[in-house]
Design a binder for these strands. Structure first.
Lengths: 269, 269
DNA sequence: CGTCCGGTTGAAACATGTCAAAGAAGGTGG
DNA sequence: CCACCTTCTTTGACATGTTTCAACCGGACG
């Protein structure tokens, strides 16, 4: 069972309807209070954000600290640069970006976040977030109060280790982006970006070959260190070469292998 | 008391001589065994890598797990991409780089590391290092077995929190590099780089205005996503404009303020 | 003393950015 | 449900910044 975007239907309780109807805010808030304790143990995507080796007792303890935030509408901020660290967040459904703002107004998209991914670790160092996190579509996130996570992870080694791994993976991801920004040309960057998305969709049970971009060309460009026109041209180029079929924000990868080969073979820069 | 590079003399026991004389390797190794237990508590730079709130007991426990590695010669690897995670490392003296290698041989320098900075966190996620760490000058590092650190940090909240902060700061640093690579032009990048070095030297008690670069133009270029010729030209440009005086690898910043202004005011890219 | 490595500089090539115009998509309110 | 408005996207022509290629310099080192 899949939706219009080729996403497998994920059941996540009565929250589903919140994205589809427009309840008055008042009702919504009341329901949320009830929802605050929604259990990780019954979450359909918990294998994405929780350690495999977590036993029943550990799960229960975690359930006790994890809250569900009010669903975010497209364009809403999850947190803003400068705001104090309260919690880390795990994406339950939806799609977010985080972006760093330079003093002079330049924006650099630092990452895109999808189901099962964790946000907010940038704030642990200084106690303040250094980037904005913004929903690119209506999204639903779990909130993990940071202090309680730290405390709990002292008692549950598996959780502790898992948390370290998540932070470390953020670091390695960043290194990958640096490699991309520092040494690839435009088409390579876009190919790498598409392949990365493809792989992330695939590991969540979506099609690796057909997906919808949730972000604009400008946001892709910002992430890849390019202008939106360059992104647009690169897409056209890929399409002309029969690598992908682009129709607005829907992408179909026609030749995954050639897309892979493109990286590292189109220049020696 | 300063050395030829304007660095304050750091006393760190009998190890000092290892950098200055050339003992037979055999003798060296024997001495190292004795040195393995060199105490953090007596380390002159421990305020750089250890939490402020660590009490005497905590320090002693940490001393028990931290080893001193054999000093690295210039050009030696601390670890290589692909090697299994054993330990994290704190730079005691010296200067290292970490670099990611792309399949096709392209190298991207992901960071430079100086006294008090921690390396190796990239490996926690997968259990393997994803980058090479190479000494750019003779260096001396402390080795912190990762498993033991994880265990110890469960018992010492201050240590745990400190470790999280260090990882988080690595993430925010990476975001800064992404901003730089993604949205700055060549001269801005170099200015940002120099200012960053300046500030790091300053916080270690060295001069913020005069310092020696430990890396080549090519390594700077790789870090900044530019070619070595571009770095060279940018240095010449800065010199012509009276911003810095460059003589080989020695840098003197003549106009810190104008260097700062340069970032964000030379383009709107 | 010659060689090698790192650095500098110039000229030309090239990739990407900039500016502009026009078209398509998507959301909003009547 | 349509019309309008805004935002996003595409494409072209041109400008610009950075790379590429090549020559040369100077210091370090055997």
């Amino acid at each position: 069972m899949q939706d219009a975007y080729g996403r497998p239907a994920v059941s996540y309780g009565i929250f589903t309807q919140f994205n589809e109807c427009s309840m008055p805010a008042q009702t919504l808030r009341q329901l949320n209070v009830v929802q605050l304790r929604t259990a990780c143990s019954s979450c359909s995507v918990h294998e994405l954000c929780l350690p495999a080796g977590l036993d029943q007792h550990g799960l229960e303890q975690l359930d006790r600290i994890v809250n569900r935030k009010r669903p975010l509408k497209r364009g809403e901020y999850l947190y803003r640069a400068g705001s104090a660290l309260q919690s880390l967040y795990a994406v339950r459904t939806g799609f977010l970006k985080s972006s760093v703002l330079h003093d002079d107004g330049r924006e650099q998209v630092a990452g895109f976040h999808m189901t099962g991914e964790m946000l907010g670790m940038d704030a642990i160092g200084s106690g303040k977030h250094i980037c904005d996190a913004i929903a690119l579509e209506d999204s639903d996130v779990c909130e993990i109060p940071y202090n309680e996570l730290e405390q709990l992870s002292r008692n549950i080694p598996a959780l502790q280790h898992h948390f370290h791994r998540i932070m470390s993976r953020e670091i390695t991801r960043d290194y990958g982006v640096m490699l991309l920004l520092g040494s690839m040309r435009a088409e390579e960057r876009l190919a790498a970006f598409l392949l990365n998305l493809s792989q992330r969709f695939a590991s969540r049970g979506y099609s690796p070959l057909r997906f919808h971009l949730r972000m604009t060309r400008e946001e892709i460009g910002s992430y890849l260190g390019l202008k939106l026109e360059t992104i647009s041209r690169a897409f056209s180029q890929f399409q002309n070469e029969g690598l992908v079929t682009v129709r607005n924000k829907s992408i179909e990868i026609s030749d995954l292998e050639r897309l892979r080969l493109l990286i590292g073979h189109c220049s020696e820069r």
